[in-house]
Design a protein around this nucleic acid. Structure first.
Lengths: 200, 200
DNA sequence: GGTGAATCATGAACGACGTTCAAGAAGCGA
DNA sequence: TCGCTTCTTGAACGTCGTTCATGATTCACC
């Protein structure tokens, strides 16, 4: 009776619906029946296309990561070529904070969703974010010293902590911005000072 | 027929059961029926005692916070009275990391459970942890300068980020320890240097 | 166009979840 | 013992993720 929609159409419709639900109502509101109703297909079809609901959620999260990647690119493009590392890191950190806050629900979904099946081939969102920002810090991953890599990872984790507390409103938004730049500056300065004193 | 158990007994039995489930299988395994079965009562009784399942979870989390508070006290007691703030903070931060890792499921439950009803009278876990550690940093909250309070909050958020990444294995455990002490040292040093340069 | 096999969409059905509540058991003062 | 209150119980409700027999649709071949 009804025309059978191309497979790709269902896919994009479901993804768009899922995105909208996550953005407007948060990760918890994302259910198979909701998506099916809004994508105008049955739950069965959803499972044919995505395997598990995890699959759908992962794709939504991949879209978010792509958005983050784009923001990274924009931020880097705005920096002068000879910008110091502290400047680069500060800009990236502020961008990360801004991104998490303007896309609160999207960003939360990245961490609220713990994939049930421990697929070790698949990188965790944390590692993906990590790699994307490290790559954008303007350093070729190949010729980065182990110590530099460490300080970078440490910095990112620390900033992630502040961002997380900012998103769930434990830290007021005004202060979060200051904290992030404090962490970058204090981290870089303290780190350099410690290196100079031979403490590392 | 059967003797009616005292109300308090059911309460402690349910709490003990819930704790065990969280510790051994994680927050996701905590269901009303599981707890009821293991506490040898009906689901209805559980709801009579705790109102909602949230109530039970909150009590488990309060136990965890009490444990954390005890660890804070132990850590502080071990410090010499004239220990510098950097030393105090470092000890507390390492303790926090150790606590989160040895009580992985307990600690995760603190953050995985988002109370549905936004009870503004009730402080968030983050704020509770915050207050408990700040109080233990050896500073009377009354005579702490605004700038010091800021740097403390920033430090705690940053350390929380590293701990979170350590618990979910994004950062290997060996490195997490180094990162935590790096953050404390770099934070304190960088912060002091910036104050001396009049940048703050 | 007709036909058979292969492919795909469908939604009722399953078990588990949080939560409720009518019915009955247990307690208790008389 | 009786009446009244108080507490316990588990079946029942609606929702969740997930499955799968059924029937509709497609398509290669005649």
């Amino acid at each position: 009776m009804t025309l059978r929609k191309p497979l790709g159409e269902v896919r994009t419709a479901a993804l768009r619906a899922a995105e909208l639900i996550v953005v407007e109502e948060g990760f918890a509101a994302l259910t198979a029946r909701r998506v099916a109703a809004e994508a105008e297909c049955s739950v069965g079809t959803l499972y044919n296309v995505f395997g598990h609901l995890d699959g759908l959620i992962n794709e939504v999260n991949l879209l978010t990561l792509r958005m983050l990647g784009d923001e990274v690119a924009v931020t880097v493009a705005k920096l002068p070529d000879d910008a110091r590392r502290e400047t680069r890191l500060s800009a990236l950190a502020q961008m990360y904070l801004r991104f998490a806050r303007t896309h609160r629900n999207r960003w939360s979904a990245l961490f609220e969703h713990r994939p049930a099946t421990e697929n070790s081939r698949q990188q965790s969102v944390e590692q993906l974010i990590f790699g994307r920002i490290v790559a954008a810090a303007g350093i070729n991953p190949a010729d980065i010293t182990a110590r530099d890599a460490d300080s970078l990872r440490m910095l990112l984790a620390a900033i992630h902590g502040v961002v997380a507390f900012s998103v769930n409103r434990t830290i007021p938004s005004k202060e979060a911005e200051r904290y992030v730049s404090l962490i970058v500056q204090a981290g870089v300065r303290g780190y350099r000072e410690m290196v100079e004193e031979g403490l590392l």
